[in-house]
Design a protein around this nucleic acid. Structure first.
Lengths: 339, 339
DNA sequence: CTGAAAGCGCTTACAG
DNA sequence: CTGAAAGCGCTTACAG
């Protein structure tokens, strides 16, 4: 199919290609009559500028990259969707790049995207947003990038995050307010920096309430359903008789819930369970899981906003932008009064 | 950062840009010594061809589009991941485009991708792969496209699918072999063509066994967890005393499972439940759900293979390719002997 | 087997 | 406010 080019539009509108370019890019200094005439022809011919030609001559690609560890997770899906919709509003496209830091050659793949695709910016999801070597690739390439929920905020990177520590503290306080004193905690993996922040929040709330944390009830999981299943079993065998278990994410909380069911322990009557993330699965359980809503899609949209903001783009990576978004405690059925 | 171009490589290797082009594209007719020399310089300079320049001068973009209704679903994530990895192997990139047919303006978005990005091909996921108007946009644009699990197979489109009908028939047969006679069925939504095929399979197996299907135990859900929850309630109230419920997908099966739990019905001792899809959630339940594995990632990889196959590309859309992949019955704990 | 010329469809930098 | 020229970094089509 013959594609319509800027020349076709120019010829038909009786102006130069440059004028058409001005109109489609919304630049100033075009007489309104001419602008209207050109727009009419654009509509008639159903003209779409060739993104490649545009990128080749300008230094912009209108392409953003989303670099992510595990693109199959529900977390990834929500982040991606948030980014996708905002990109569309801004006239950008999104390229998703899985990055497996364990596998030889990841650096080459990342470089390929950056150089081959001339990405205008990158969004880097956790946990890989905490990898110094990876960030260095972006810094050296001079490409603006925004980290989602990173542990530290390098000068050279933008960042969007929520307060994991405070959220975990609130959740713990919620359990304390319900009368729980024997609370078990399942940590996330060391590879995710959020794990440490959530643990800190838990400890802070317990300390503030003057409760000594029972270290034998502080287990480490890997954010998987299976680890919740197994560690729930361990926690429920403990002599201290826990009345509540706070898991660092919803998948593990779900595992604990199932374990309790298998043992015939009523939730929340005999055991309260809460999670973190507000994953889709936290609603697909019974009782539904009390959790913290993490603004995943919003963090991704905000990252796109930062990267596509003309002011930000002009200032360059020196002026990295930072933004903290609000979380929310979602009260559902899995946590109740202490027995 | 100054980018390395083909000229830089050519100059340093002492050859013409055209020769470098030949080498990086793996064309024939280059003397081995020269090829090696060029490759050495490419490595030294860390040269990456500019994808935009390449696309502008050739008629190829090395870009595939994945058009999908609901990019947040687990189904979408698996399809996307399958496509992504294969694209990478083939030197292609993948652009994900959410398409909401209910919303005004979807056609414009789709056209933008096709024309603006000059996509080399498109993968269209269910259920939108059954929309004639949407397909027409691709056909008129003359862009090769492969449908994932479509209901019909238009001459002008490639297709990759599994035998939903037969899979549902096998699952039903499995229940029958376990001694079940009173089997309820939860259909999927009309918008998904797979719903009808799965229902046909169920009916075929029942008919073959000489069992008259109780139409009051044939309900229609919408593939959501919630609809499984609600329809499970309805089915368990039925006077015919079902011993098994076959839900058309795992999310609904999970809903039925939770409903049974709430009612204190033991699964699988008193009630067998099975689903379809092998979604991640089917394993995050207790008992785990007996289901049909749908080769989602494999279908996507196969679609990429078709679209990037040089032979296919040469023949053009006339010679649309078709491929059926195998499913598998996954026996887990949610279905057992009839009581 | 190798290369010089032309061109893909835009935008940049400049001139008027 | 508008346009002619040059160029982005490759590939195509052709010549040798």
């Amino acid at each position: 199919m013959k594609m319509v080019t800027i020349k076709d539009v120019a010829a038909r509108a009786g102006v130069s290609p440059k004028t058409v370019s001005r109109v489609i890019n919304g630049e100033d200094h075009v007489r309104p009559e001419i602008r209207d005439a050109v727009q009419k022809v654009v509509a008639e011919l159903n003209y779409r500028p060739n993104a490649f030609a545009r990128s080749l001559s300008s230094s912009r690609s209108y392409l953003l990259g989303l670099f992510i560890d595990d693109p199959v997770s529900g977390y990834a899906a929500e982040v991606q969707h948030g980014a996708l919709l905002r990109c569309r509003e801004r006239g950008y496209h999104l390229v998703v790049e899985p990055v497996d830091l364990q596998r030889e050659g990841w650096e080459g793949h990342v470089r390929d995207s950056i150089s081959g695709l001339r990405l205008d910016g990158a969004i880097i999801a956790p946990p890989i947003c905490d990898d110094a070597e990876l960030l260095d690739v972006f810094v050296r390439a001079g490409i603006p990038h925004v980290l989602i929920a990173p542990s530290t905020q390098p000068e050279t990177s933008g960042a969007v995050w929520m307060d994991d520590r405070r959220a975990a503290q609130e959740m713990t306080q919620y359990l304390l307010d319900l009368g729980h004193r024997q609370v078990g905690f399942i940590r996330g993996p060391l590879s995710h920096s959020a794990s440490a922040r959530r643990e800190q929040g838990f400890r802070a709330a317990m300390a503030e309430a003057g409760i000594v944390v029972d270290e034998s009830a502080m287990l480490r999981g890997d954010f998987s359903f299976r680890s919740g299943l197994e560690l729930g079993d361990v926690l429920l065998e403990l002599p201290c008789a826990l009345t509540a278990i706070f898991a660092s994410n919803d998948d593990m909380a779900l595992g604990v819930l199932i374990t309790a069911m298998k043992r015939g322990i009523a939730v929340p009557e005999q055991l309260s369970i809460c999670g973190f993330d507000d994953a889709a699965t936290s609603r697909a359980a019974w009782p539904q899981i009390t959790t913290i809503r993490q603004p995943k899609a919003e963090m991704a949209s905000a990252a796109v906003d930062i990267l596509t903001d003309p002011a930000f783009r002009k200032q360059g990576a020196d002026h990295a932008q930072r933004l903290m978004l609000k979380h929310e405690l979602i009260v559902r059925g899995s946590a109740g009064k202490a027995p």
